[in-house]
């Protein structure tokens, strides 16, 4: 999730939005005065209507006719209680469906551009599990989109029909998985196993801010549990309880620059348009995405 955070990081308030926009402008993410005005007004309404503790701007996914602006609302638990919304005009917001692993895999096969019309349908045909295999437990709203067909040679073909908002939800979730990043020390694990923002975090040093190993994925750790125990005991469990960007696969997934000596910018090479920023020695950090919503599968050839 998230973005455009600040002193009370991850809240988009009057101050943090401008500061964050300043930091990401050099990466090509700019908003017009009109969009800023609209967002400030409509996100306050969204927060109020949905009783969120905070709302934040996630970024935008560029469509061929319209762009999707994405915002997220956060409840009491900033680690687990996050909902995503999209808007075409920065004024009215609609909630995105909840991501599902089956659809995530299916959407990863769609390489066409987003159009900007949430009703646009994509049809994906892919091989399914053999008839004899157990079917995973699929919620009805996902099952509804999929139709299985047994072919003459006993293989199974699954055809999934997806509207663009469904695909958008999966893209946002996939990007969040890889690009939602926080600096070391910004969040801590409390003794009762809750992830909380650290009140004493005062930012990374200028040098450290430009090193990707000082950033962590803000998601349930996936790499960490599989590390050898000998390595794990060296980590500080209150601060280093998340996956470090240094463990990303492929290894060179990020470009890190300390721009103008004053703001660290990490650009995702896997999701072009994914930008993480942190102003050294301050509590200001965040990330934002502005791009086509499609993954770069060619990284191996490009370095």
């Amino acid at each position: 999730p998230l973005s455009l955070s600040l002193y009370s990081p991850w809240k988009m308030n009057l101050a943090s939005l401008s500061a964050s926009l300043d930091a990401v402008a050099s990466s090509g993410f700019v908003l017009s005065a009109e969009q800023r005005s609209c967002l400030r007004t409509s996100l306050v309404s969204l927060q109020n209507a949905e009783k969120f503790v905070s709302v934040r701007l996630w970024g935008k996914i560029i469509g061929t006719t319209h762009d999707y602006f994405i915002a997220q609302g956060v409840g009491q638990d900033s680690f687990n209680d996050v909902k995503s919304f999209y808007s075409l005009d920065c004024i009215t917001w609609a909630q995105l469906p909840i991501s599902h692993p089956l659809l995530a895999a299916t959407c990863a096969r769609i390489k066409s551009r987003f159009t900007g019309d949430p009703a646009t349908e994509s049809v994906v045909t892919e091989p399914g599990p053999a008839e004899s295999e157990a079917r995973p437990d699929v919620p009805p709203e996902v099952a509804r989109l999929r139709s299985e067909k047994t072919n003459d040679d006993n293989t199974v073909t699954v055809t999934t029909t997806l509207t663009e908002d469904r695909r958008l939800a999966e893209a946002v979730a996939a990007i969040d998985h890889d690009v939602c990043v926080v600096p070391r020390g910004a969040f801590k694990m409390t003794p009762n196993n809750r992830v909380e923002q650290s009140k004493t975090f005062s930012g990374l040093g200028s040098f450290d801010a430009g090193q990707i190993e000082n950033y962590f994925h803000f998601r349930k750790p996936e790499v960490l549990p599989n590390k050898p125990a000998a390595e794990r005991v060296k980590l500080d469990p209150t601060l280093e309880f998340l996956d470090s960007l240094a463990d990303d696969v492929p290894t060179q997934s990020w470009s890190a620059q300390l721009e103008r000596g004053e703001v660290a910018i990490l650009r995702s090479l896997v999701w072009p348009g994914g930008v993480v920023f942190h102003v050294p020695s301050t509590r200001l950090f965040g990330n934002v995405y502005v791009g086509l919503g499609t993954k770069n599968d060619d990284l191996a050839f490009m370095l």
């Binding site: 609209c38 007004t41 409509s42 309404s45 927060q47 109020n48 005009d89």
Partner: peptide, 14 residues
């Protein structure tokens, strides 16, 4: 609440 109310009022402008 005042902030939310103002946001509500202003959203009619856009």
């Amino acid at each position: 609440a005042e902030k939310a109310k103002l946001a509500q009022t202003q959203s009619q402008l856009f």
